[in-house]
Simulated assay, not measured.
Amino acid sequence: MKVKLKRYYLNLKKYSALLLLSLIYLSSSAQDGNAGIQKANTEVRSYFQSGVQLMYAVGALVGLIGAVKVYQKWNGGDQDTSKVAAAWFGSCIFLVVVATIIKSFFGV
């Protein structure tokens, strides 16, 4: 029992020292990484406006295709026209809401 306890404490000391050295290394290298993280932040934020515009464009395209699809089903007398119209309308609303949330969340 004493041998297992000694081995446990020895392993605990080794892993604690390893963890401490790892934390020291990470904290010293993190100061160099802050500039890189800040640069990545500004680059990603510069793409948000384009992404929001792309989502609006995809929403418009989905809206046009869905409107034609609903119109064809309506003229064909299909029974599931309301289901297709609801799905089409929901997808358009979803894309607009997601684009607006991204815009407001990231302050673009």
Rank of each mutant, 00 (worst) to 15 (best):
Tyr8Gln: 04
Val44Leu: 15
Ala86Trp: 05
Ala85Pro: 03
Ala99Leu: 03
Ala17Pro: 00
Tyr15Cys: 01
Gln38Leu: 11
Ile102Ser: 04
Gln72Lys: 15
Ile93Trp: 04
Lys6Cys: 05
Tyr25Val: 12
Val108Phe: 08
Thr81His: 02
Val97Met: 07
Cys92Pro: 00
Tyr15Gly: 00
Gln31Tyr: 15
Ala60Asp: 14
Ser82Arg: 12
Phe89Tyr: 09
Phe89Ser: 14
Lys13Trp: 01
Gly59Met: 03
Ile101Pro: 00
Gln31Trp: 15
Lys83Leu: 14
Leu10Phe: 08
Tyr25Ile: 13
Val52Gly: 05
Lys6Thr: 06
Val44Cys: 02
Arg45Met: 14
Arg7Gln: 08
Arg7Lys: 11
Val84Ala: 08
Val84Asn: 05
Lys83Ala: 15
Gln53Glu: 13
Gln31Lys: 14
Ser50Gln: 11
Leu26Phe: 12
Ser16Cys: 02
Asn34Leu: 15
Val58Asn: 06
Phe106Ala: 08
Gln38Trp: 09
Cys92Leu: 13
Val52Asp: 01
Lys83Thr: 15
Asn75Cys: 07
Ala17Leu: 13
Trp74Val: 05
Ala17Thr: 07
Ile24Leu: 12
Lys39Gly: 01
Lys2Thr: 07
Gly36Arg: 11
Asp78Met: 06
Asn41Phe: 11
Tyr25Gly: 08
Ser104Asn: 14
Thr42Gln: 12
Phe94Pro: 00
Gly36Ile: 14
Ala40Gln: 08
Val68Ser: 13
Gly63Arg: 01
Ala30Asp: 10
Ala87Gly: 10
Met1Gln: 05
Val58Gln: 07
Ile102His: 00
Val3Ala: 08
Thr81Trp: 04
Lys83His: 08
Lys13Glu: 03
Phe105Pro: 00
Gln79Met: 11
Tyr9Ala: 03
Tyr25Phe: 12
Leu95Asn: 02
Ser29Lys: 14
Asp78His: 10
Gly51Ser: 07
Lys6His: 02
Leu64Ile: 11
Ala86Leu: 15
Ile93Gly: 00
Ala87Gln: 12
Ser22Trp: 07
Glu43Trp: 05
Ala30Pro: 01
Trp74Met: 12
Gln49Cys: 06
Asp80Ile: 05
Leu18Trp: 03
Val84Asp: 07
Asp32Val: 12
Gly66Gln: 02
Ser29Arg: 14
Asp80Glu: 11
Ser16Tyr: 11
Lys69Arg: 15
Val96Arg: 08
Cys92Ile: 15
Phe48Asn: 06
Ile65His: 04
Tyr15Val: 09
Tyr9Asp: 08
Gly59Arg: 06
Gln72Glu: 10
Leu54Cys: 03
Ala57Arg: 12
Ile24His: 01
Ala87Tyr: 06
Leu64Cys: 07
Ser29Cys: 09
Val97Ser: 06
Leu12Phe: 06
Thr81Gly: 05
Ser28Glu: 06
Tyr8Ala: 04
Phe89Ala: 10
Val3Ser: 08
